[in-house]
Computed example of a mutant assay.
Amino acid sequence: MRLLMMRLPTPVSLCAPVPLCLAAAAVLLSSPAQAAPRPSCAATDDRAFPVTTRIHGGPDSYEAGGGYGTWYLDLTNTTTRTCGNIHPVVVLVDERRALEPTQPRLEFYDGTAGARPHPVRFERTDADELVGAFTDDRDRFRGFTVAPGKTLTVKVRLALTSDAEPNEVTANAAVVQRHDGDGDWVGQSNDYRFDIEAEPARRPEPASEPASKSTSEPASEPASEYASKSASKSASKSASKSASESAPAPDAAATTTPAPDGHLSLADQLAGTGLGPTVALAAAALLLVTSGALLLVRKRR
């Protein structure tokens, strides 16, 4: 990196604001010097910059961690000579002085059809401004050329990383024409102010509520009545099985079908213990006889 020495083509009184002048005087341009420097821009008025510069079209705010916002930089050559080797230098001044050089992601387009954007690397100055020059050695970008009396519009896009704090930022562009190891300060833009908004917090998915239990479930039957009904159903099954001796005996797993009220019959529950269908049916029949006897005793009393 080399410090680019600056020559001011206009009186120092035009250096406003002061932070922008300091940043422009300390800008770093690392591209190799041209073998034959191009002619210098010369303003017709000693109190005006030869390249009128204007930032426009940018959004009012950027979301940290969000996408790019696009804006434009107009370079108007007010002279009768071609201005070549022009390098805009963007200066970012944030209110909180918390913006880090790696947080702004700034890229510019050189106007070449199909060309990818050029990244801008920021440096921090002693006055806590971030300064980034439009230069790219990788793609051998040597600056813009603006014809006499013409305006060149440079497309720029900016994004902020997710760790950027909420802030208010002012962007300016100083325009430098490079000559070998030094250069001329030939333009200065208007202010472009924008906010940095915090990345929205990720809201957790609402927990699914447990299904409410139905209040219309039928009341459970008394144990004696339930046992009697289950035994009757089991006895009916026994009669049906004895009528068809040629049919193979079902295994225990196949006989465990729920009763219409949603409960397993007592025979099915006994069969599930591994006692076998014969023992289960015998136990059910015994229970049926016992239940009938108990009912007769109660009626006689």
Rank of each mutant, 00 (worst) to 15 (best):
S216D: 12
S216H: 09
P218R: 01
E221I: 12
P222H: 05
E225Q: 06
Y226E: 09
A227D: 05
S228P: 03
S230D: 05
A231I: 05
K233H: 08
A235V: 12
K237S: 08
S238I: 08
S240E: 05
K241Q: 11
A243Q: 01
S244I: 06
E245V: 10
S246I: 09
A247I: 14
A247M: 14
P248R: 13
P248V: 12
A249T: 10
A253Q: 15
A254N: 12
P258A: 05
P260E: 11
P260T: 01
D261V: 06
D261R: 00
G262I: 00
L266T: 08
A267W: 03
Q269G: 06
L270A: 03
L270V: 11
L270N: 07
G272E: 06
G272R: 12
G274F: 11
G274P: 06
G274H: 11
G276M: 00
V279R: 08
V279H: 09
V279C: 10
A280Y: 00
A280I: 02
L281H: 12
L281I: 06
A282F: 07
A285D: 10
V289D: 09
V289Y: 07
T290P: 03
S291Y: 03
G292E: 11
L294P: 02
L294K: 09
L295E: 15
L296I: 11
L296S: 07
R298N: 01
K299I: 14
R300W: 08
R300P: 09
